[in-house]
Structures are given as structure tokens and as C-alpha cells.
Design a protein around this nucleic acid. Structure first.
Lengths: 108, 108
DNA sequence: TTGATATGATACAAAAAGGTATCATGTCAA
DNA sequence: TTGACATGATACCTTTTTGTATCATATCAA
């Protein structure tokens, strides 16, 4: 039930792939359109798109002979949630507040 | 000025390293203590710790012949911020709310 | 001092990542 | 139908990653 975070984290580990996500945040793009934005072959970009798809971060739909790549930002949710576990270490004031709350509602 | 996200994202790409971060969230640990939690050699764990350190996700202090590894959750902040850019795609209702707020307090 | 312990450092090997080049296939447009 | 175009698929290469094995160094404790 809990999603496997590994493919998403791995997909995010490459700067080109992170750039692709930002690009797709603006608009859907074909493979050729994405490739135009990078100084590498279409085949290389295609591999990145496959890894992004493996991580669920993008979806691909066929449209004629083209493949339209779309951002699937929802897949970032589990990643954010994983990172959110560390929120407790970010701000000692927030920490103090949490302690107070937990004291009042001991539900652990 | 804006931090280089790459070392942090790369550090997060490995499941063992993510597990180490959670471990260090509970308490500081020596290299040997961390190694005890995994089915691999101390040298391998040490390499993971170096990568975590490279990403700024942990800090290491010497204490006698031991090296105490501590979580540095603050380094996750830029990662969260990067991911936060995609918040706009998660919930259209939240989007609408944000638009209203931004209209009322135009401070960008 | 001396032996045990904690770590550092290096060489090595297997696997994965990231890229190119090349050719096949499916689709559009005239 | 036919040529151009978008993509799929595969082979191949280089570099990085991930792990092991081994030995050196520093420090603690008796």
C-alpha cells in the first residue's frame, strides 16, 4: 500500500531529470520538444523520460505518432511526506510547541 | 548563494542512506553503531556516510577515536523547497485559496 | 608499553547510470 | 503509395556507484 519511494528518489537524483520536470510544469511536451531543451541526443533524453515514468513522476500518452509527456506532480507527494518526517528537527520553537501539544493530548 | 542541490538529491537516492538519516533522527551514532544496523561492511557504510556528509545531510565530530555522526536536517530544507515548487499542481482548491491570499497581500 | 578497538585509506570488482550511434517501425501528408 | 518524420529498440562504450578485502593509523585501557 505504501508506495515504493525508490524509483521516485532515483528519478530525482539527476539534474537533467529535475529540469525536465520543471519544463513539464509549464506545459506538456513531446519527446522531441523535451530533447530540444538539452545538449544531448534524443535517445538519452528518452531514457531520462523512462526513468521519470518509472518513478511515476510523468505520464505519457500517445497522440498519433507523437508521445505527449505530462508532469504527474502527485507522485511527489510521498517524497514530500518522507522528507516531512524531518520537519521536527527544523525549528526548535516548533518543537517546543509540539511538546506542549503532545503533553496535552498524549496519543502515542 | 542558492545551494547546490545535487549532492543532497544524490545522497537521498540510495535507500540505505535514507535509512541512515532516519536512524540518526533518533540519536547520534558512531560509524560502528550505524554499521551494526546494516548487512554490509563498515567500509561500505562509511562511504554512505561520506556521501551524506557531502550532501550536508549529516555532520561528523571527532570524539577520541570515535566519529560521531549527527543528522543535519536543515540541509533538507532546500530539497523541500525545490519540491515545493510543484505544490501548485497538487490541489486546485489550495491553488484557488493561494490566489485569493496573494490578491489580498501582494507582497511578491 | 601493549593489545584491542575505531577509524582511515586504498585497491579492486561487479553493476548501474548516462551517453552515443544505428536501424526498425508506425504515422502523417501529399 | 511514398517519402518524411516521431518514436522504439538495441548494441555498445565510459564513468559512477556500490560493495568487498586489506592494511595502516590513532587511541583507549590495563
Amino acid at each position: 500500500m505504501t508506495p515504493d519511494l525508490q524509483p521516485a528518489f532515483r528519478a530525482l537524483a539527476d539534474p537533467t531529470r529535475r529540469d525536465i520536470l520543471r519544463l513539464l510544469g509549464d506545459r506538456d511536451m513531446t519527446i522531441a520538444e523535451v530533447s530540444d531543451q538539452f545538449d544531448m541526443t534524443r535517445a538519452a533524453v528518452k531514457k531520462h523520460l523512462v526513468m521519470l515514468s518509472d518513478g511515476g513522476l510523468i505520464t505519457v500518452r500517445a497522440e498519433g505518432r507523437e508521445r505527449i509527456n505530462s508532469l504527474n506532480a502527485q507522485a511527489l507527494r510521498p517524497v514530500m511526506d518522507w522528507l516531512g518526517w524531518f520537519d521536527r528537527f527544523w525549528d526548535t520553537r516548533l518543537d517546543a510547541l509540539k511538546s506542549v501539544i503532545e503533553q496535552e493530548t498524549p496519543d502515542d
